[in-house]
């Protein structure tokens, strides 16, 4: 094979880049096993912070709420996002397409403070009109998360659609299947890996969100990131290091599953 012209320093730069991305997390995780309360002085190996973490009732309650919110938000996002991605990927030009694409894309890039404020204004107006959602708890937070999770799912689904031959759906319709039936029986199974990856992404985005949830939630609902933020503002604590380590490990596993789903698709 011909030697391609390369810049020989590139692998070094890449290694330095990965060190930059991963070292802070590794150091943080290491100090979660520190015996000392001082987060930066090593005093021997211990798992006591993990013990305290799993005995912290408020933390567990918040984790439960965040988990439930993320499940609902991801499912809503996936349903609507798949539909929207299909519309963008298959329907070519239709009246209002530019507006459609912009509305879909905007929540993905716009700053979270704008998004959170917009969601709260909508809920607050709705509340004064019909008396719901007065509490702004579980449902309201999940709905707000679905508003931007939808965008990410739609983008993933649209990208996968480009790799699927439209002739397959056309064949189904030529054989007399109604568009909806062709979508459910032919397109959706082909899209399944993208839909699953989209669900996982919407799930982690919801689990991770601080800003939108802070704006939207009423006084009764505290998600896990909100609790973490409140305690981080008071100072570093080894318990937060332990919690962060647990979350990083869980999310790394989820991301790995999502990437395996993607890899299975590309081999098929």
């Amino acid at each position: 094979m011909m030697r391609r012209p390369t810049l020989s320093t590139l692998p070094t730069v890449l290694a330095a880049g990965f060190a930059f991305l991963y070292l802070p997390i590794v150091i943080m995780a290491a100090f979660s096993f520190n015996e000392s309360r001082l987060v930066t002085v090593w005093a021997g190996f211990s798992t006591r912070w993990y013990g305290e973490l799993f005995g912290n009732v408020r933390m567990l309650e918040s984790a439960g709420l965040s988990f439930a919110v993320a499940m609902l938000a991801a499912s809503l996002s996936t349903t609507i996002g798949t539909l929207a991605g299909y519309v963008l990927g298959r329907f070519g030009r239709f009246p209002g397409r530019a507006v459609f694409a912009l509305l879909l894309l905007a929540p993905m890039v716009l700053p979270e403070v704008i998004l959170g404020l917009a969601m709260l204004m909508a809920f607050s107006t709705l509340d004064s009109l019909v008396g719901w959602p007065a509490e702004r708890g579980f449902l309201a937070i999940a709905f707000a998360h679905a508003c931007y999770g939808t965008a990410f799912v739609a983008v993933i689904v649209e990208a996968r659609l480009r790799g699927i031959d439209p002739a397959l759906e056309e064949a189904a319709r030529d054989l007399g299947a109604k568009p909806w039936r062709a979508f459910v029986r032919v397109t959706l199974p082909l899209l399944a890996p993208a839909v699953a990856a989209g669900w996982l992404l919407a799930f982690t985005l919801s689990l991770d969100d601080l800003v939108v949830a802070s704006f939207v939630s009423g006084p009764g609902a505290t998600t896990l990131p909100m609790l973490v933020y409140a305690s981080v503002r008071l100072g570093l604590s080894p318990q937060i290091n332990a919690l962060a380590t647990v979350m990083v490990v869980c999310i790394a596993c989820l991301a790995w599953v999502a990437s395996r789903i993607g890899a299975a698709r590309s081999k098929a």
Binding site: L21, V228, A244
Partner: peptide, 25 residues
């Protein structure tokens, strides 16, 4: 995958990790 992984990992936690690194102590 290694580039993507931090994006999946909690934003708040990544910022928190730097707080521990950068403080005077």
């Amino acid at each position: 995958f290694l580039v993507m992984l931090p994006f999946w990992t909690s934003f708040l936690i990544r910022v928190y990790a730097w707080m521990g690194l950068l403080r005077p102590t």
